[in-house]
Nucleic acid binder design. Structure first.
Length: 873
DNA sequence: TCGCAATCCATTTTT
DNA sequence: TGGATTGCGA
């Protein structure tokens, strides 16, 4: 066992240690509450298996729920067992692992190795086309059927292992029957174009091991993270992988099961106990993340679920600040409050908290609009987690379509897209004609076009021959390049040159410049991928059944299709100091010192379209348990819904908390004084801020008191009575009635800027004293002096001027690391870490409040929120 | 086939 | 309210 691992083992509590070192031969279930260090345990267990039990990494299969979790695990393991070993692990999502297995052994069940992975968008398009055949029938019966509906029904069926015949047999009405029929024709369509959708990866994976169980012989140990969110196909896969050696470790938390809508089945936890009768269960109930008060409130919420398995959750942390439960008149007020409150906490903490320490967690993405606007208005840098994904952007899909088509000329979605990009005046009609003609000759659409081009086949009805003069030779060239093992970046460059893609973007897209940058980023990604391909470890080969050697192109396409969050492997985003806006779902597994959960209203929590109320409750629980030190739950009495302002009521999840537990929330935002901050520093394991700064700021601020009155009045100046002294001119600007700002000259430049956390946008206000202390800019200066952007100002993210970077050599001290973070592992490894005195490293506050969505992750500059058409088609 | 304008519609979560 | 879809004319 190496030093790093033994150092980590020493940091574990008894239960954690027990879990890590548990006999590998005996199946293990770890039920781990939020913040109980489950990832640490799982990772350490892998390391332990390798180092103590001498398992070969290539014989270990570790499954995560997201790619992000996989790369986080990979990163931790790099430190624990070294990159060399980590690379050999079979680590990834079920989907990614299955893709790998199927490439290798797919022939066993009649798949070709050339299959294309079809993403949800493309699936939807296929369904939309198939649905057309039912137009008349549906209309006649006055029924409507959305493609999305059909798709999710099919997806659900697949996740449960139901065939179209099964679905048909179960059908209770016409709609069900039609869906079952569509399922059948969809399956056939995919088969014809040699494509697998996401669910198919699992379905065929299971089929593979059903047919050939020995193919799992390599697998000495299976580990599954987020086990409560596995669906029945995934569970079956786990069983199959474990069938031979029966060594399994899973980690999960039934309270955090929030993917039922994706056919996840918590029942797998008890199913596992039946399948492995000797299964050992270890509970991790010690929370290292949150204060007692936050845990108390969270438990008060989740324990309303009477069917829930009782589980304790304890913490060593202080009770801390009570979570706030706030009411607002309307969403704008709520959003404005949150923005101001973020600034207040940054100020009151003397800069110990910075933008990146705040998260606003939402039930659904659309709620972010008001908040983005409010943050923007306050010049608070922010980013939307998830949002639009890089690989879903129009310009990226255009290029990918060409690449997919080279790899698989039968893949209709790629064909339909590439053929008319840039526009060759080949529309829907023509494409339909080509597809039909191709089908009748049993050729791929590309083969047919080549035939037409060479005059071997007659042209189709809307003539196409003249329009493909350049397209066909281009395609042939690309195919040759690819077959000869050409590098993907070269292929892409060839595509964009030959199609004059840049011109095309310029002509068709208003924001062509950022799109063009994204294309460049795609090339970069491909380049990087070429040098450092994942999946290099061979799976055992099967006589005569192995897949063809992977071309760089195929590996690239597979990774692209399966990659959702590209940001994780992109370091650029890691150190961005921004407030995070995220859905509650996407926040799973993450934590922040301060968390806001707005919109806790009936209809949103629980979401009105979800029948599974218990799941919605757990979702709120997940959101609340992300918070380390401060938690704000809020709701509005009115909210704009469906274009109309409607009355709203507080969520049952809050109002139905039994009376004796009601005190878990405070009806007002907390008073954040020096003592509170000291406690927070402890919880966050950070150095407390300079008491001088806090004291001075406190004085200037009066009481550090939050707004306490009349939140229900949309025009209320909620800060009016709580901020005194120089701060009093800082009228809270709600939507309309901004009080006239009477400026009081700053007394001392440095302090004034601290005391002025709420700069108004009023034109009567002179510019803040920003240049006053260039040598030692106070942390708070950055935002305090951050001039509001003009209303129509550029939305682009501007990189920080180098002058505001942290001073060279400023390294975080050991104590600032959070105990279980990657950083701390690095720290343990790198014991030479420099200690730096004093100054909190908060200088790097971002300027310019550009919203940057994380999903794209590639270009550091210039992402614009997706425009209407960005969504492509 | 494409671009613009009128119209309609209604707010989820993601591998 | 904004956005997405549909329908029309060039």
């Amino acid at each position: 066992m190496n030093d790093t691992l033994s150092a980590v083992l020493k940091t574990l509590n008894e239960r954690q240690y027990q879990a890590v070192t548990h006999n590998p031969e005996i199946p293990l279930q770890i039920l781990a509450g939020p913040g109980s260090g489950k990832t640490k345990v799982l990772t350490s267990r892998v390391a332990y298996l390798v180092q103590e039990h001498k398992l070969r990494p290539s014989d270990i299969c570790a499954v995560t729920f997201t790619n992000k979790a996989a790369s986080e695990m990979r990163e931790r393991l790099n430190l624990l067992i070294g990159e060399e070993q980590t690379k050999k692990l079979r680590l990834g999502t079920f989907h990614a692992l299955c893709a790998r297995f199927l490439r290798q052994w797919g022939k066993t069940i009649g798949l070709t190795d050339r299959f294309t992975i079809c993403d949800a968008d493309e699936s939807k398009k296929i369904i939309t086309n198939l649905l057309k055949a039912y137009d008349g029938q549906l209309k006649a019966r006055r029924l409507t059927l959305q493609p999305g509906e059909v798709l999710s029904s099919i997806s659900n069926a697949k996740a449960k292992g139901l065939s179209s015949a099964d679905l048909f047999a179960q059908a209770e009405n016409d709609i069900h029957q039609i869906i079952a029929e569509l399922y059948a024709s969809y399956t056939e369509a995919l088969k014809k174009m040699n494509a697998l959708d996401f669910d198919d990866l699992l379905v065929y994976g299971v089929r593979l091991y059903d047919k050939e169980p020995t193919l799992a012989a390599w697998c000495q140990h299976v580990l599954v993270d987020e086990f409560q969110d596995t669906n029945s196909m995934q569970y079956r896969l786990m069983l199959q992988l474990a069938a031979i050696h029966r060594c399994v470790s899973v980690v999960g938390d039934p309270d955090q099961s929030i993917y039922g809508w994706r056919a996840a089945d918590v029942g797998n936890i008890s199913a596992m106990q039946k399948n492995f009768t000797d299964c050992k269960q270890i509970m991790l109930e010690h929370n290292y993340r949150s204060t007692g008060a936050i845990l108390g409130a969270s438990i008060a919420i989740v324990s309303q679920d009477t069917s829930r398995i009782q589980k304790a959750l304890v913490t060593d942390h202080a009770q801390g600040t009570k979570p706030a439960l706030l009411t607002f008149a309307i969403e704008q007020t709520e959003a404005n409050f949150i923005a101001k409150e973020i600034k207040r906490l940054v100020a009151c903490s003397g800069g110990m908290l910075s933008w990146k320490d705040f998260a606003i967690l939402l039930r659904f993405n659309a709620l972010s609009r008001t908040l983005e606007a409010a943050l923007q208005k306050e010049s608070i840098p922010n980013r939307v987690l998830a949002g639009h994904k890089f690989f879903e952007r129009l310009e990226i899909k255009d290029i990918l379509a060409y690449l997919q088509l080279i790899d698989n000329p039968n893949y209709v979605p790629a064909f339909s897209r590439a053929i008319n990009v840039p526009s060759r005046s080949i529309g829907e009609k023509t494409i339909a004609a080509v597809l039909e003609a191709a089908a009748s000759r049993e050729k791929s659409p590309m083969e047919l076009l080549e035939g037409i081009y060479e005059g071997r086949y007659p042209d189709v009805k809307p003539a196409v021959k003249g329009k493909i003069r350049e397209f066909i030779p281009l395609h042939q060239q690309l195919r040759t390049m690819a077959n000869e093992g050409g590098a993907v970046p070269d292929l892409i460059r060839h595509i964009i040159t030959a199609t004059r893609y840049e011109d095309h973007l310029r002509k068709t897209q208003p924001d062509w410049d950022t799109r063009w940058e994204n294309v460049q980023e795609l090339i970069n990604y491909a380049q990087q991928f070429d040098q450092d391909p994942e999946d290099i470890v061979e799976l055992p080969s099967v006589e005569g059944e192995d897949g063809a050697p992977e071309t760089p192109l195929r590996l690239f396409l597979q990774a692209s299709m399966l990659s959702t969050d590209t940001e994780s492997d992109d370091d650029k985003n890691k150190d961005t100091n921004k407030v995070v806006l995220s859905t509650c779902h996407a926040a799973k597994g993450l934590e922040w010192p301060v968390v806001f959960v707005p919109g806790v209203e009936q209809g949103i929590f629980p979401f009105y379209r979800n029948d599974d109320v218990a799941e919605e409750r757990r979702l709120l629980y997940v959101a609340c348990t992300r918070a380390q030190a401060f938690l704000y739950v809020s709701y509005c009495s009115k909210r704009m819904t469906a274009g109309e302002i409607k009355d709203r009521t507080i969520s049952d999840f809050i109002s139905k908390i039994p009376a004796d537990q009601k005190k878990v929330f405070d009806k007002a935002a907390p008073i954040v004084g020096p003592k509170c901050i000291e406690e927070v520093a402890k919880v966050l394991r950070r150095d407390p801020p300079d008491t001088d700064i806090v004291e001075k700021a406190t004085k200037e601020f009066g009481s550090f008191a939050p707004p306490r009155e009349n939140l229900l009045d949309p025009n209320a100046n909620i800060y009016k009575n709580t901020i005194r002294g120089p701060g009093s001119h800082l009228a809270f600007s709600s939507s309309r009635n901004t009080e006239p700002a009477t400026f009081q000259p700053a007394r001392m430049a440095g302090i004034a800027s601290i005391a002025n956390p709420y700069p108004t946008r009023s034109s009567s206000q002179p510019p803040p004293p920003s240049q006053s202390q260039p040598q030692t800019p106070h942390p708070l200066m950055a935002w305090a002096s951050n001039k509001p952007k003009s209303a129509s100002g550029p939305k682009k993210f501007r990189p920080m001027p180098s002058s505001s970077q942290p001073p060279a050599g400023a390294t975080a001290t050991l104590s600032t690391f959070q105990s279980t973070s990657i950083d701390s592992l690095k720290a343990m490894k790198n014991l030479g870490a420099t200690e730096t005195a004093g100054a909190p490293d908060m200088v790097a506050l971002g300027r310019g409040a550009g919203t940057k969505r994380l999903g794209m992750g590639f270009s550091a500059g210039g992402y614009k929120p997706p425009s209407k058409r960005a969504k492509q088609e």
